[in-house]
Amino acid sequence: MPTELERVGVVGAGHMGLGIATALALGGVTATATDTAPEVLASVPIRLGANLERAVRSGVWGERAAAAARDRVVMCRTLEEAVAGAGLVLESIPEDLPAKQVLFARLEGLCPRATILATNTSSLTLVGVGARMARRERLIGCHFLNPADAMPLVEVVQGPETDPEIVDAVMDLWRQVGKVPIRVRFDQPGFVANRLIQALTREAIALVESGVASVEDVDIVAQVALGPRLAATGILLQQDLGSLDLLLTVAAALYPHLQNGAEPLPLLRELVERREVGLQAGRGFYDWAGRDPATVREELAARLLNVLRGLGGRARPGPYAARDLASGREER
């Protein structure tokens, strides 16, 4: 790993930011993290400990590796302290465009010209985030899925002015800490993962809204049919395993009947209007009454780690299976 990327500043130590810091630390990188909320900073030791204990319980990491990782997460009270000496500074603050613009303008002034500046935005464009920067060639996107310490994927997003050598260096960093980076070749809303997730979610909501299937049954299909098959082959390789002429026939017959509206579906709007917005509110598509949100999220993260371990663990994550199958190489 290049020496200059052995220290990464993480701005924002909430659920996502701390997950990113945990992943970096487990991969051997020092993560200097900060947050504007004192209570968030104060809670870091407990939350970091929970992340690491979960990783050990799942068998993905050993106790020695977890103990070393704990020492690599350094909490900083100021932004200046967090970015000092960092070869990469990664922002993980709320999705507020003006706030991100102000932050990156400030980071540009604080960091040496060689420091790479990255945003974890999931919905904003790099053009918008970097609008107040003078040197946008060092701005890149690094989008994680929650929980960031468990989920292997990192979408590395190249903006219109991003230096390609910076993209290569950041891709190498994430590989070396055990993540699976993909290169998003140009800046578009939703990148890759969220576009796929939203397309599937829109159809799932439409099936429930129209009465075709219950919430529970739609999720069962995703868990026991789509999930295992997609984990083994991906989307497009699966079509090659069948036949593209069959895909064309099915697509011509089915596409006209799929949900393709440009606006959120009425069922979703109704749930939000009733403030039934999910786990934190006690009700969403499911009834969460009486469940502690922190406990539920911890259970989900543990389940994800167990699934990922079954797919090959941190060293050989599931996506490699499709690549090896297509090339004739089998993992040993």
Rank of each mutant, 00 (worst) to 15 (best):
15 H>V: 14
276 E>I: 15
6 E>V: 10
278 G>Y: 04
220 I>Q: 06
303 R>Q: 07
73 V>F: 05
282 G>T: 15
316 R>W: 06
251 A>L: 02
293 P>Y: 01
151 M>V: 15
100 K>L: 05
177 V>Y: 02
111 C>S: 03
110 L>M: 02
22 T>P: 03
169 A>E: 08
152 P>R: 08
285 F>S: 00
194 N>D: 05
169 A>K: 14
274 R>S: 08
245 D>H: 14
110 L>N: 01
81 E>K: 09
243 S>H: 13
219 D>T: 02
330 E>K: 15
239 Q>Y: 01
100 K>N: 05
223 Q>G: 11
107 L>I: 03
195 R>N: 00
149 D>A: 13
67 A>L: 06
119 T>Y: 02
142 C>I: 13
199 A>I: 03
280 Q>P: 14
115 T>P: 07
81 E>T: 04
68 A>P: 06
268 L>P: 12
72 R>A: 00
7 R>G: 00
259 Q>Y: 05
105 A>W: 13
89 V>M: 07
240 D>P: 03
274 R>T: 12
167 V>S: 05
291 R>C: 06
101 Q>K: 15
78 T>W: 02
198 Q>L: 11
323 R>Q: 07
1 M>S: 08
198 Q>C: 09
267 L>V: 12
331 E>N: 12
3 T>F: 10
211 G>A: 09
197 I>M: 14
